[in-house]
Design a protein around this nucleic acid. Sequence first.
RNA 1: GGAGAGAUGGCAGAGUGGUUGAAUGCGGCGGUCUUGAAAACCGUUAAGGAUGCAAGUCCUUCCGGGGUUCGAAUCCCUGUCUCUCCGCCA
Length: 425
Amino acid sequence: MLDIKLFRENPELVRQGLKNKNEKDRVDEVLELDKQRRELIIQADELKTHRNQVSAQVGQLKKAGQDASAIIAEMKRVGDQIAEFDGKLNKVEEDLDSLLRYIANLAHESVPVGKSAADNVETKRWLPEGFSFENDFKILDHIELGKKLKILDFERGAKITGSGFPLYIGKGATLERALINYMLDLHIHEHGYTEIFPPFLVNKDSMRGTGQLPKMEEDMYHIEKDGLYPIPTAEVPITNIHRDDILNEKDLPIKYVGYSACFRREAGSYGKDSKGFLRVHQFNKVEMVKFVKPETSYNELELLVKDAEDILQKLNVPYRLLMLCTGDLSFSAAKCYDIETWSPAENRWLEASSCSNFEFFQARRANIRFRNEATKKPELVHTLNGSGLATSRLMVSILENNQTPEGKILVPKALQKYTGFEIIE
RNA sequence: GGAGAGAUGGCAGAGUGGUUGAAUGCGGCGGUCUUGAAAACCGUUAAGGAUGCAAGUCCUUCCGGGGUUCGAAUCCCUGUCUCUCCGCCA
């Protein structure tokens, strides 16, 4: 969430920022609640000071064996007044907190202002040697390939669970697992990340910490009986590792990478992009998360994107890099790059990674701080995360781009020692 | 799932309902001593909020929530977590 001080000191900046992000302007509501809050605190604190002083007196009188019943009776009335103010104050603070949690992060100044995905800016395009958008044989899509080679079975996945729960079989399953292991190893051994294997279910506090709740409640699966949520991304458990922590400055930046299955309800998105792997309820993802000092976060974002790109270059997958405009940025992000891989069958780019800087937004919600060595005071960190990468859409690009005219799949060189085979036929 | 014990500052560990934000020890930081270091000694060492230019002053916080009381780390209820024993189990 945003800093309440920003609303007090520069309301117009917040107003414009929310407008750029296509968000509702609720600045005046925040300021009004903030004003009420401060007035109540002043009144309640005054009474409490009084109570504390008189209560100490009562103690001394009793010790001296004297009668204190008169001031005790008076203090009872003061106590009731305090309870009244505290009740009002709690209500106002709850309202303010929940309002702030519904307000989106503001975009960084380097982000282009725009209304929708159409205004995103392509900043880079990388194509493997010898790659061409034209093909001299009929390209099969990943669903046809998966069926023909008996490596993917979307119908049986739907029978077992429901649509959007893919089933991998034989070499398809091996390829998926190889991809996950390959990506993890690269990030751990070459990019300097610490491996995490997180829980796949989290509690409400964790979902609030990273910003999925309360606003995106409808997009989440929810196990009501136990109050738990299947994670939509490993970002949630990994970022919450340090919820309420005060980190050592010398340990920053902290870089974690972890695999998890990801669960998303994708409510309301049926019919759109819903075939095969394009939009699923369960998929696999390797996620990178960083906790950094604020002044380094934009540099760290560039490095994060590089770490994700490195995977695609080593796997020879054609991709492009987009800088999202203000209107297409997610709720929590201040700046975000999407990486899209090429699908020759779809004849378009598919989002396979999203790398974001959240600045203080998550850190403030989750209360993640570090101790500044110079000032000795705790300060909020910046958090970042990026997929590195999601396997489902990446799998589409790998299968489709590596097919032969006979409909076989050539396994990318880098993956072969992980799969143990070079071809799927 | 059943029975019991517990949760206090960075850590360890006291705490009779009344100057307890909290003894003591360790650790950290600063200093004295020393050529330097160690030891010893002295001092210092929580977070959040309100107010103020600031120094400061005040409020809250002893796992979370509720209650009793003039006053709660301390008493009551409740939730969570940890440990021990039993049951079940990959």
